[in-house]
Design a protein around this nucleic acid. Structure first.
Lengths: 194, 194, 194, 194
DNA sequence: CATGAATGAGAGTTCATTCAT
DNA sequence: GATGAATGAACTCTCATTCAT
């Protein structure tokens, strides 16, 4: 595949991303993407066989960018509390966001394509987030910011709560206050008093 | 609609339930249900206009049965720890179950039909579970089984974790051990030592 | 068929009439009529096999009533001009009427059921109207109200114009003024000066 | 849409025309046209969304051709009487024709799609015919062929009679002689003696 | 006579996928 | 590589019509 093709492929993936954001995963048809990209029907098939394949590429792109963002916030010389707060607020923003979120599409995709162990973007993201969270809590414990006996367990617990909040936001609706309440609970559990 | 119709309607809902369990919500077509029920194309339309309507009835049935199950476990003269364990194990079984679970279909349904505030089976279930959980924890605190300063907060936290586990089980896969680990974390957090 | 049946049949025909007025002929289904009459699906089939059969009964009813109305206006001791004007104004009202007119349904019916020579309500109506019109014109000529060499021809001409106006009103739309203009033309042609 | 598509579109319209001639407008389904054209189900939808859209194109085609035919007969150096006779005979042929006439379909179409003021092919045709007829009569009056005080009124009257004849031919049936009688009446009314 | 549940044919419509150019 | 016309399978939905009760 030539240089040009690579660019076109990337263009398709980026454009398709918008479609997935808007419609989730299942509702999206090859036609939708063809139209969004303004390319020919046959043209799309030169690069992808189905929407699942395209979505995987979208996820790949996503991973690259998200990883960066995350590590960024940690590199800075901030206290553990600061970083944790930053992260939780970022998550809150993401899960309350109505537009420009792939959350729903991702869930739908993994419903349809159950657990391709390897390459499971969601699992990889989750596990990596747990690890980082654990590191962060340990750091906080060391600096005396947090009180926590089971850092790994707490990290997992926090991430599962966030996952629960995310799906609840999508399926039941959730208020900004309700999210704040959960964030506070998490902080207090770590012995942080505001 | 006569007595007979009511029975047939119930038959359709119960049969459709199996289809939803197997295929989730979105993939299911009226045709699928017609075939599963072995009735005529037009016959189904006498009772339901679309799959969403059928699914709502499935959820209604579900609610009735689930409610009973829940209250049953509480009525018995068991300790708070017993009841909590019973509940968590029930949840574990449910979320690890590959077959015979509506979880995926429910999430898909609420993705597609975002937040009809009223009648949102998921939210109603969730809120009611939080309430029961809170009562349970308070009970445990009184009997000295649990240590907990913020019963309401903890109840919510537990339910969000369960929600997180549920969606993770669906989308990333999760091992029995991993669930146990989270259950233990919850118990320990309540001051329960095994 | 008993007394009761006759009444029910009449009830169906009268109710169906409203449906035909509203929807024309072709669009009307047996279901429409069943619903309008609030009887059972099977029940309707006891009386009629299809919409065409029902419509014929509607037309029969129509004939009876229309004939009476027409002869009424002639019996009275009015001048030929008066009667003609009365008739033309009646026609005008009918053809401009948006609601409560069977015109469209009738045309549609005869499109679908081309020319059952006998029983062609439209033809019978038309021919009879021509006859009456001819009589009227002859009467007017005798009283010196009209000037006309070919009463039969003029009568036919007038009726065809009315037919043309009727279909134009249905298919192209026509203004009240436009109809008046044609009426005036007809009168002037008969030597009537207002 | 490329050159080829234009040709295919035209092919569909021309083929559909035959279907409309045969079945009128309402009875025709997309499937009928698909079969008549011997193309695929989906193929037709590439060009048209529904039968109404196809019919409009049929009418467009019709207009183009009819206009030409009409102006042709006028351009020739014939007397007004000749032209009028030619026109009336053409109309007679058209309205007596059992096959190859769109009359019924056109009426049905405008019943269903009431009066889209603009683009109302029927009205446009009618108005334009009235104008031409008026010119023709004025011409005849100048040459002394016709006697007529109200050329515009007479033109309209003639056209409405023709409209009446047309619908009568469709719905009641009409004999060749009957049409001739009306033509004679029209001519006599213009002071033409044969 | 009357009911209305049930059937199944058939119309509309949308898309994934192919293929000649 | 790229196009987009074409195909056909699949689904939704509506009714005419029947028939057991």
């Amino acid at each position: 595949m030539g240089e040009k093709s690579v660019q076109k492929k990337r263009y398709i993936v980026e454009t398709a991303r918008k479609v997935f954001v808007e419609k989730g995963f299942k509702k999206v048809t090859m036609k939708d993407i063809v139209e969004a990209c303004d390319i020919s029907r046959g043209g799309l098939y030169l690069y992808f066989e189905n929407t699942g394949q395209i979505f995987q590429e979208v996820l790949k792109l996503e991973s690259e960018e998200t990883d960066d963002v995350f590590s960024d916030s940690i590199k800075e010389d901030a206290t553990a509390v600061d970083i944790l707060l930053l992260f939780l607020r970022e998550q809150k923003k993401e899960l309350l966001r109505k537009k420009d979120t792939l959350i729903q599409a991702i869930y739908e995709y993994y419903f349809e394509n159950p657990l391709p162990k390897k390459n499971n973007h969601l699992k990889i993201q989750f596990d990596s987030a747990v690890k980082v969270m654990e590191k962060l809590i340990e750091m906080g414990v060391e600096t005396g910011e947090f009180v926590c006996e089971d850092c790994a367990g707490t990290a997992r617990n926090i991430m599962y709560v966030l996952e629960g909040l995310k799906i609840s936001a999508q399926c039941m609706g959730i208020s900004s206050d309700a999210v704040d309440r959960e964030i506070l609970y998490i902080l207090r559990n770590l012995g942080v008093e505001e």
